[in-house]
Every structure is written in structure tokens, then in C-alpha cells.
């Protein structure tokens, strides 16, 4: 990877509630390189949406506690739309229903000091690239299908060539065919230089694996593991990542004979998170040392992990077997 684009350093963002602070993002440090597509995965409530939001816009309940995020030297959140942009989870309802799409885009780019007329040829070119005709600019959002709206939003969000694009669960509301198309469009946007780097927030590892260069796994407000996509999926080191990946259904496996299982237990509540490793209660490999918080360290080039076991043993194959055996309760399938 070339130069570093996004640098997040020990970022802590809490949610204010009447019962105290919910520590949704508790000290995360990572980098995203130029032209890197980083998948950000984890189960709901792990803090991945909070991380995405804290890079673009704090909502009223979010409180910045410590740390910083820098994008090409610009402190985030800042430079919305021109530097950082978002494809929201709710792309279907993201556009004002009573304004024509062209008018909406014109209002928005003018507010950022651009001329709509000058941008129009490029806008039309990009619409055609995602398979929309220029006519959609004269349509109201309700006149478009869900997939068309999603693509229009993708073009709209990236029109000013932002340095960082956050795609927040963009495929969740789509059928499988469209998911694939959207994922490929994202890669194409990066390849054509519409966006410099990208964070794809998702809970669908199998999808993000197809497009991401690296994948970052979060658990309970902390980073668990970051590695190149191939490595993370094929040789994960963190027990949580392993369990996450082994709970995915596999092609060719008949689930009538082999029961599809998840990870037993639930993630801890972040109002009063446990000390030490936060995955300790659910981890089949937990031992004494896990009472102490594991640092997020680089065990191999580009492979970061926050687990004492993974750091000390460094032999993924062995651990994986142990892990799998533990999960199935030692009984053969």
C-alpha cells in the first residue's frame, strides 16, 4: 500500500445516556492507505456504525472523549461531502421525495460552491456508468426503483471525488443480485478515482471479502483484528474472527446434517464493559492473561490482532482446531 490516507489514533466516542456513558468506541487506532478499500465488520452493537459516524458527523448524543482522526492532514469530522462522503444505509429514502433528483443535486453542489452546469456532463457520465440514463435527473425519487435509487445515491455521494467514502451497510436492503452489482460499482468507483479510499461497513463478511483489500473486525467497541482480506478470511488469528467466519454457511454443506451454529453468548453491554479482553466471556480459548487488556499489535506485516493467545502462539492452524473443537462441545459432527 502506498501513502496513508486516513489515520485514526486512539479514538474514543461515547454516547451520553441518563444512566451514564455508553462506551461505543473505546480507543481505536488504525490506518487506511490511499486507494485501500477497508471492510469494517462486526455484529450489531460492536461500534462499527459509531466509528463510521464519528468520521463524518457526530449526532447530538455522541461525545468525543479522546483521540483524533486525520484525513490527509484534515481533522475529522470535517470537509463533509468534498473530503468525506457517505452512502447511507437508508439509500432508498435518502433523497427528498418532493424534489426532482437533478434539482436536489444542483442545490447540494451549489451549496458547496460548485457550478451545477459545469458538473452536469460528468454527472451524466457517471449516471450512465451505473446504468442510469440522464432522464433520472428529471424524475422524483419515487419514480425510481429501489436499486435505481441506490445507484443514484452512490453517484450523488461521490460526485465531488471525496478522499474517503464511507459505505454504511449499503447492501443490507438489496437482493443478492443487486448486492453484487453495488459491490462491483464500489470497486469501480475506486478504480476510476472517484474516491481515493473507502470504508465499507457491513456485517456481511462474505460480501466484503469480494471487494475489500483489508478487513477490520470490531468487537464491543474495540478493534479485534485487521488483516488483508485473504488472510483474515483464510487464516484469522483472533478467536472472535474465527468464530465469526466459521459461523458462515458454506456452499455444498447440507444444513440438515450439520447444524448451522452461531457464537454462543451475547456481546457485553457497553455501559459498563468488562475489564481485560472484552471477548473473554465468550472465548473458548480464554485464560488468565485475558483479564489484562490485550494491545492491538502487528503480528505479521499488515496483520494486527488484539489477543494474547494469537500473539504468544502465532500458529493459527492449531488454534483454529482447538477453537472449532471447543465450539462443537468436543463431539464429532
Amino acid at each position: 500500500m502506498s501513502a496513508v490516507s486516513l489515520q485514526v489514533d486512539n479514538l474514543r466516542v461515547y454516547y451520553r445516556t441518563t444512566r451514564g456513558d455508553v462506551k461505543a468506541l473505546d480507543g481505536v487506532t488504525f490506518e487506511v492507505a490511499d486507494r485501500e478499500i477497508m471492510g469494517l465488520a462486526g455484529e450489531s452493537g460492536c461500534g462499527k456504525s459509531t466509528l463510521a459516524k464519528s468520521l463524518i458527523r457526530y449526532d447530538g448524543r455522541m461525545r468525543h472523549v479522546s483521540g483524533k482522526a486525520l484525513l490527509d492532514g484534515l481533522s475529522l469530522p470535517g470537509g463533509r461531502y468534498t473530503k468525506v462522503s457517505l452512502i447511507p444505509q437508508y439509500a432508498m429514502s435518502a433523497m427528498n421525495p418532493t424534489v426532482k433528483i437533478g434539482r436536489l443535486i444542483a442545490d447540494l453542489v451549489r451549496a458547496h460552491g460548485w457550478s451545477y452546469r459545469e458538473l452536469l456532463p460528468e454527472l451524466v457520465r457517471r449516471l450512465e456508468l451505473v446504468g442510469l440514463s440522464a432522464d433520472v435527473l428529471n424524475n422524483y425519487p419515487i419514480e425510481l426503483s429501489g436499486g435505481m435509487k441506490q445507484r443514484a445515491v452512490m453517484v450523488l455521494s461521490t460526485l465531488l471525488n471525496p478522499s474517503l467514502l464511507i459505505a454504511d451497510e449499503v447492501t443490507s436492503a438489496l437482493d443478492v443480485t443487486n448486492q453484487r452489482a453495488v459491490a462491483e460499482t464500489l470497486v469501480q468507483f475506486r478504480d476510476r478515482g472517484f474516491v481515493t479510499s473507502m470504508i465499507v461497513v457491513t456485517h456481511d463478511i462474505s460480501l466484503v471479502y469480494q471487494i475489500a483489500d483489508t478487513i477490520l473486525v470490531m468487537y464491543a467497541g474495540k478493534l479485534a483484528e485487521k488483516a488483508p482480506a485473504e488472510v483474515l478470511v483464510n487464516a484469522p488469528k483472533h478467536p472472535y474472527t474465527r468464530l465469526l467466519i466459521s459461523s458462515l454457511p458454506e456452499v455444498g454443506v447440507r444444513h440438515a446434517t450439520r447444524k448451522l451454529t452461531g457464537i454462543p453468548g451475547r456481546p457485553p453491554h457497553l455501559l459498563n464493559p468488562p475489564t481485560g479482553c472484552r471477548f473473554r466471556d465468550r472465548c473458548p480459548l480464554a485464560y488468565d492473561r485475558c483479564a489484562e487488556e490485550p494491545p492491538f499489535t502487528e503480528v505479521e506485516p499488515g496483520h494486527f490482532v488484539a489477543c494474547w493467545k494469537a500473539m504468544s502462539e502465532g500458529s493459527p492452524g492449531e488454534n483454529q482446531e482447538a477453537c472449532a473443537a471447543e465450539r462443537s462441545g468436543g463431539t464429532p459432527w
Binding site: I56, R57, G79, R80, Y81, T82, S85, L86, P88, Y90, S93, A94, M95, N96, P97, T98, V99, D107, L108, A111, H112, V153, L156, S157
Partner: peptide
């Protein structure tokens, strides 16, 4: 959602209010 999205894209408050008022 549309107000949220516009805010995320750094639209000025006046634009969001204009849309909201009309709707």
C-alpha cells in the same frame, strides 16, 4: 432520512430547512 443525508453531505441548514418546510 433525507434531512440526515443532506446534513451528512454538509448541506447548509437553510437548504435542509427549506426542504423540510415545503414537505
Amino acid at each position: 432520512d433525507y434531512a440526515n443525508y443532506l446534513e451528512t453531505l454538509g448541506a447548509p441548514r437553510s437548504l435542509i430547512r427549506r426542504y423540510a418546510f415545503r414537505n
